[in-house]
């Protein structure tokens, strides 16, 4: 295999903690640590992803569903003999794939984390669990939403009964919301410069 370092350099520069990939010695400890790896959810393990970055396989890496299978369990981080911040490298690559428009917008974790969870925070300053759940159910349309809602109705009823879910009204904005929003706008302006978007 010929090594084309163009993509690796791009990742080292633009992707969160990406420069650490240089340090990976391919031992595979991380690969043996991913909870969903054992269930076959990852096609390529973190170890393989890192080698693919160094091999210049830009499309294969950025379109991969694998980075989105990270549960943020931090097993790999505490075990890596080279002390790579693997969890954050994987998160960084997932984010970078999203920013570059390479990640499938319908990839379930991508969609949930970015369009539902994050947008829920941005909308009010806090996560409103009821609104979050509704959006999650109805992301694929009303029919699918009702089906999903019915499937989970026993758990939802259990939570309602236990007073651990409040369907209505959805929570309002935090008091300092205008300042909160201004902060995020500025933060994104700075972030976009770094990610090479703006």
């Amino acid at each position: 295999m010929t090594y084309d370092l163009t993509f690796a350099k791009e990742v080292y520069k633009n992707s969160e903690e990406g420069h650490w990939i240089k340090m990976c010695m391919q031992c595979g400890v991380c690969a043996g640590s991913c909870p969903l790896g054992f269930l076959g959810a990852w096609k390529y393990s973190p170890r393989q992803i890192f080698q693919m970055v160094r091999a210049g396989l830009r499309d294969e890496v950025l379109t991969s569903s694998d980075m989105w299978m990270c549960t943020s369990c931090y097993n790999c981080i505490v075990r890596c003999p080279r002390n790579l911040p693997i969890t954050h490298i994987i998160h960084g690559l997932a984010r970078y794939a999203s920013v570059q428009g390479k990640a499938d917008p319908k990839q379930p974790t991508h969609q949930f984390a970015k369009d539902i969870f994050w947008e829920n925070i941005v909308a009010t300053g806090r996560v409103g669990e009821a609104a979050l759940t509704m959006k999650l159910y109805f992301k694929d349309g009303i029919g699918e939403g009702i089906k999903q809602g019915l499937e989970m109705k026993d758990s939802a009823l259990g939570m309602l009964k236990a007073k651990r879910l409040k369907p209505l009204p959805f929570r309002g904005k935090i008091k300092g919301y205008p300042g909160f929003k201004a902060m995020l706008n500025k933060a994104f302006e700075l972030e976009n410069k770094k990610e090479g978007k703006a």
Partner: peptide
């Protein structure tokens, strides 16, 4: 008073680095 969400671990997807870390910083 008037705290905001910390972004949790999956905040990375929508929040990148600076927006995500700003949440706890606030």
């Amino acid at each position: 008073e008037d705290w905001n969400c910390c972004g949790a671990s999956i905040g990375y997807a929508g929040g990148g680095v600076i927006p995500r870390l700003s949440l706890s910083a606030r």
